[in-house]
């Protein structure tokens, strides 16, 4: 149980996908103009990442049986694109109010590399957990599946957290007396660098 918590915290904080790699920076800079849009994008990405990870994990098992693991990337891209289409269709049909708030951000997720990164990582859980300095304490395929779910959730929440904090900072920066040369994206990237130092150095060792 402790190992699962560690995976969640490490993937969310110290190995935050935006600050440590960095992936998903395009939408991180683009959708962080307001808190509302960052929350919408965060929820949409979390949902799609978890769903796509589960499907990709199962598809990878099939690819391993057929000894065609080299097809993984192509298959995962198609899975992510299809999941986004199905999710959009479902939301459009059954929850118009949710579509109004998430609809714009759903197509952006198709090209968000965070989703594909998670899908690529979770198919080899032993290597992934070894890289994080952890091991599968539950054991077996069920343990791997559980760790995969937690890792996908943690990574997506990490992106959500980074996006939300940055959107709050950007809203504050709009009214701050920033020197002309630093205004806009420049000061935003400086804030990102400071946040990355806090996340990666300040929190390392806690988990």
């Amino acid at each position: 149980m402790l190992e699962l918590f560690k995976v969640l915290m490490i993937s969310m904080l110290t190995s935050n996908v935006v600050f440590s790699l960095p992936y998903g920076v395009c939408s991180y800079l683009g959708v962080s103009k307001s808190k509302k849009s960052s929350i919408g994008m965060g929820f949409a990405l979390t949902f799609v990442t978890i769903l796509a990870s589960v499907i990709c994990y199962l598809i990878n098992m099939l690819l391993e049986v057929l000894s065609i693991e080299y097809m993984a990337t192509i298959c995962f891209i198609l899975v992510v694109a299809s999941v986004v289409q199905f999710v959009e269709m479902f939301i459009k049909k059954f929850s118009p109010s949710l579509y109004k708030s998430l609809g714009i951000y759903l197509p952006l997720i198709t090209t968000n590399c965070v989703v594909l990164y998670v899908c690529k990582q979770v198919v080899d859980m032993d290597t992934l957990l070894g890289g994080l300095g952890l091991s599968n304490t539950i054991g077996g395929e069920f343990g791997n599946f559980l760790f995969m779910l937690i890792y996908a959730l943690g990574t997506a929440l990490g992106y959500f957290l980074a996006l939300y904090i940055f959107s709050v900072l950007r809203e504050r920066l709009e009214i701050a007396p920033v020197p002309k040369g630093f205004a806009g994206v420049a000061v935003g990237l400086l804030c990102t660098a400071i946040m990355a130092m806090i996340f990666m150095n300040g929190l390392t060792g806690i988990f």
């Binding site: 800079l29 683009g30 103009k33 459009k92 952006l108």
Partner: peptide, 23 residues
């Protein structure tokens, strides 16, 4: 599937320069 009422396609999105985005 038609879009729900009030969700028009004419969105003036300046959020990013993603060339794959429909907007």
């Amino acid at each position: 599937i038609p879009k729900p009422e009030g969700c028009d396609e004419d969105i003036e999105c300046l959020e990013c320069k993603n060339s794959f985005c429909r907007f």
